Computed example of a mutant assay.
Amino acid sequence: MLRSYLRLVLFGLGLLIGVQWPGFIEAYALRVDAHRQEAELGLQGFRDTAEKFFQGDLERLIAHYRGSDDAVIRSDARSLEHLVQRVELLEREWQAMSGPWYARAWHVAFAADPQLRAETYTGYRYQVLLTPEAIAWGLGAALLLAWLAELLLLSLRRMLVGRPRVSRFS
């Protein structure tokens, strides 16, 4: 009887965890898009300057800033380079979050920017979504967790108790 309740608890836990995943993926995608738009806004003035003087080449603008005799301008070269790298990172993340559902799920779980993922987790508000996608994730996670727990318990039992004897005459 306790084993049945344990199964139900694990199933419920897996269900609750699973229904969070689509919401977390969506929160990550929204955070990436917001950061991307903000970084693009910050870069726009530099893009205009690069367009006016360097045919739109930001790398040439950065090189020009680096070659300046003014220490402030040289310092701005580092800041601008960091901003360009940030925009490129956010653009890659945004492209990854534009793919199919399984690619987004894999990306957030294993390949997402750690800083953005941590920021999303910190700001994430747990919710129970009842969308078909959330229900599917919830049921999948619940079944997987229950199956893994059952497999673990049966393996432990087999190691500790040994194989049950089967009678030839049964």
Rank of each mutant, 00 (worst) to 15 (best):
E93Y: 08
L58I: 09
L129S: 14
A50S: 12
V72P: 01
P114F: 15
A109Y: 05
E133D: 04
V108Q: 09
R104L: 02
P100A: 09
I62D: 06
W147E: 03
D57E: 13
S98Y: 01
P114Y: 11
A111C: 04
I17H: 01
L61R: 04
G56W: 00
G12Q: 02
L6H: 02
L145M: 14
P132Y: 00
F53G: 01
H107E: 05
S155T: 12
E51T: 12
R163D: 11
Y5K: 01
F110P: 00
L8H: 03
L129I: 00
G56E: 09
R157Q: 14
E119R: 14
R3V: 02
G56Y: 00
E88K: 12
V9T: 06
A50T: 00
F24R: 01
S170A: 12
H82W: 10
I135M: 06
V108K: 07
S167W: 06
V19L: 07
P22C: 04
W21V: 08
V166E: 13
L148C: 07
A96W: 08
F53K: 07
T49K: 10
A34N: 10
F53V: 10
H82T: 14
H35C: 12
A34P: 00
V87K: 09
E150A: 08
G14F: 06
A109F: 12
R66M: 10
R117E: 15
F54I: 10
R163I: 02
S75N: 12
T120E: 11
E91S: 13
D33N: 13
I135G: 01
L13F: 14
I135N: 00
E81P: 02
L15A: 07
D69F: 09
L10C: 11
E26V: 07
H107G: 03
S98Q: 14
A142I: 04
A111Q: 15
E51W: 02
A105R: 05
K52L: 11
V161T: 12
G140A: 06
A136C: 03
L10N: 06
R74G: 00
F46L: 11
Y121G: 11
D57Y: 02
R60K: 15
P114S: 14
W101P: 07
L30G: 09
R165N: 06
A118C: 09
L154T: 03
L2Y: 03
W21D: 00
A71C: 00
L152F: 15
T131D: 05
Y124R: 04
P132S: 09
A146R: 07
T131N: 05
M97Q: 11
D70R: 05
S4I: 04
E81F: 06
L43S: 08
R165D: 12
P164A: 13
R168Y: 06
E119V: 14
Y126E: 09
A149W: 10
M1A: 04
L6R: 03
L156D: 08
H82R: 14
Q95R: 04
A142R: 04
F46C: 04
R163Y: 04
L148T: 06
R60I: 02
L160C: 03
I73P: 02
L143Y: 08
L30E: 14
A71D: 08
A109G: 09
I135C: 03
L139C: 02
P132A: 08
I25Y: 01
R117S: 15
A105H: 01
G42Q: 15
H64I: 01
H107P: 02
A34I: 05
A34L: 11
S4L: 13
E59L: 14
Y124C: 11
L145Y: 01
P164C: 08
P132K: 12
S98D: 11
V161E: 12
F24E: 06
M97A: 08
